[in-house]
Design a protein around this nucleic acid. Structure first.
Lengths: 219, 219
DNA sequence: AAATAAATTTAAACTAATCTAAATTTTTTG
DNA sequence: CAAAAAATTTAGATTAGTTTAAATTTATTT
């Protein structure tokens, strides 16, 4: 049985490896977990001891099969709880991350499979991230950043690439969330910002940086 | 902010004081928390330091107003989660205690008030225990042990006094839970056991010890 | 390829929570 | 009320997780 802290390390290693497509470095882990590189080194030794990671001094870490299984399970639990908090308890999506961060550590197969059933086996969380199934398999779907679309095209929002509260609050403001329809009416050459029509009602101008962080499918 | 462990001590002090109607002793806490008296003494000093308890060496402890507030809040959270687990996730009542024991430590006013609303502001948990409201007030109701009833009388089960898994599983077997109707058809003089009619369908004999642990109201 | 910078690890120390064993205080009992 | 028993506390050690500062290794630059 792993501690709360050990579990968080595994999840961080998973996320960093996924994003940067290589082994996670001590420094990146320290940044991610808001701790010092010395503490990270200490913990990596412990996790290697428990055969959760492949670790070689100065070389960074990757997860073992078992480490990967646990990290995936944590992500499954996290995302299922986020669905619960948003759909059942009516939380705004920018408020659910921290709570799910705690709920995910409660270990019980039974709890999670019942929660999954109660929520009707969702495949994606409120941010559009894929929820791995009980076997650890992620559902993949076609999606692209809004910034890749041509002028005149329409799309449906699937999710976000960026999870900061500031970004999520901004999307609330302009009434954009998974499911929202967006039509690109004009692309400003100067800064690549977009004039868009949201849900056939509201007009808005969004920056290129926002458009790159919005994941959509063409319709 | 209190640690997980400190919170469990406050809850244990609350429960022991409630049951024995006096200050909680070091030994009773050690038994309750499955630890050693030495560890308890250590922790009591820390909790006294934080002004959560009134503590005098060799004299036992009681909660301060603040300690009482926190313990009550924990009990509120525990019982609300139990309602969620039984009513929404369809767990059997003997399986929810341990999970609620973990869920209760997630601190968020918002989470609990939304959960409360989602569950429709329940006043009692699946075992029939009163759920304190947001102000810490417990709902009191008239209830008596089944063993106090006369032959021929009928009643409705409100809850249980004893929470062991063995007892709860036995009640499942004879199809008794809060809401169930019981009519006493005969009292055996020899051992005070009762011949009862359950929900006007099934007949059963229950021991005096079981009858003393079932809380009911006459109908 | 040496010098410098950046990343990482080691060493030593700290805190919270725990334990065992010994010492002390309180309670019970003959 | 003194002796014995029970309850409680103290002392000293242990473990997980952390920190800072110094030392080491790897990467980058001239």
């Amino acid at each position: 049985m792993l501690s709360f802290t050990e579990e968080n390390y595994l999840k961080a290693i998973f996320k960093i490896s996924e994003k940067e497509k290589k082994s996670a470095s001590t420094n990146s882990l320290a940044r991610h977990l808001d701790t010092t590189p010395a503490s990270v080194t200490d913990m990596l030794k412990r996790l290697a001891e428990k055969e959760m990671i492949h670790y070689e001094r100065y070389k960074g870490v990757t997860l073992t099969a078992e480490g990967n299984r646990i990290a995936t399970s944590l992500i499954r639990r996290h995302r299922l709880w986020e669905v619960f908090l948003v759909e059942k308890l009516r939380f705004d999506w920018e408020h659910v991350h921290d709570l799910a961060e705690e709920l995910e550590h409660i270990y019980s197969e039974e709890l999670i499979s019942r929660l999954d059933a109660f929520l009707n086996y969702p495949k994606f969380d409120p941010h559009g991230d894929s929820i791995p199934n009980a076997e650890g398999k992620f559902t993949i779907r076609n999606q692209m950043p809004l910034s890749d679309l041509m002028t005149g095209q329409s799309c449906q929002v699937l999710g976000v690439k960026e999870h900061s509260n500031a970004f999520l609050r901004y999307l609330n403001q302009i009434k954009v969330k998974p499911g929202t329809q967006i039509k690109i009416e004009e692309r400003i050459e100067f800064d690549a910002s977009l004039r868009v029509l949201i849900d056939q009602k509201e007009r808005s101008t969004i920056s290129d940086s926002v458009a790159q962080s919005l994941l959509v499918k063409r319709i």
